[in-house]
Amino acid sequence: MAAIPNLNLILEALSLNPKLHGGTARRKRAAAIHFADKKAPEIQENQPLPEVTKRRLAVGLASIAVFGSSGIGKSLAEDNGFWLTGPLPIPTVTSDIRNKETGTRSFVKNQMYIANIGTKGSMYRLNKCAFDLMALGDLIGSDAWSYVLRYLRIKATFMYFDFDKVISTAEANEKQPLTDLANRLFDNIEELEDAVKKRNLSLTESRYEGTLVLLQEVMSKWPKILNTSFEVKSMK
Rank of each mutant, 00 (worst) to 15 (best):
R184W: 05
P41D: 06
S234L: 14
V66N: 10
L203N: 12
E231C: 11
Q176C: 04
G60C: 06
R150G: 02
E190R: 02
K197S: 08
I189K: 00
N188E: 06
W145T: 00
R98K: 15
A115C: 10
I10G: 04
D164W: 02
V59A: 14
P87N: 15
K198W: 07
G73Y: 12
I225D: 01
S220V: 07
Q44Y: 09
T204R: 01
N173P: 11
N200M: 04
A31W: 09
G81P: 03
M112T: 00
M112L: 14
D143E: 08
D79G: 06
L7K: 06
A156P: 06
N116K: 13
E45H: 12
R199N: 08
N110C: 09
L49H: 04
V218P: 06
N188W: 01
Y151T: 06
E190L: 02
S206Q: 13
D143V: 03
E12M: 07
A62V: 13
L139T: 02
R26Y: 03
I114S: 00
T24D: 03
A58R: 12
S75E: 11
L201Y: 15
A182F: 05
I4M: 12
T94R: 14
P89Y: 11
K198H: 07
M1F: 03
K120W: 09
R199A: 10
S69N: 13
E101N: 15
T119K: 13
M112C: 01
D187S: 08
R125T: 03
N8R: 12
K155Q: 12
A13Y: 10
N80I: 07
P223I: 00
T104V: 12
T94H: 12
P48W: 08
D164N: 15
F230L: 11
L76D: 05
L84P: 00
M112Y: 03
A30T: 04
R150W: 06
G103Y: 12
L11H: 04
L76H: 05
S75A: 14
K109V: 05
H34W: 11
K109P: 00
S95L: 04
D79N: 10
T228Y: 06
S146E: 15
P50A: 02
R207N: 13
M159E: 03
T179Y: 03
S106W: 11
G137H: 08
F82W: 10
Y151V: 04
A40I: 02
K224Y: 09
N183I: 06
P87I: 12
A31L: 13
T102F: 13
K236W: 11
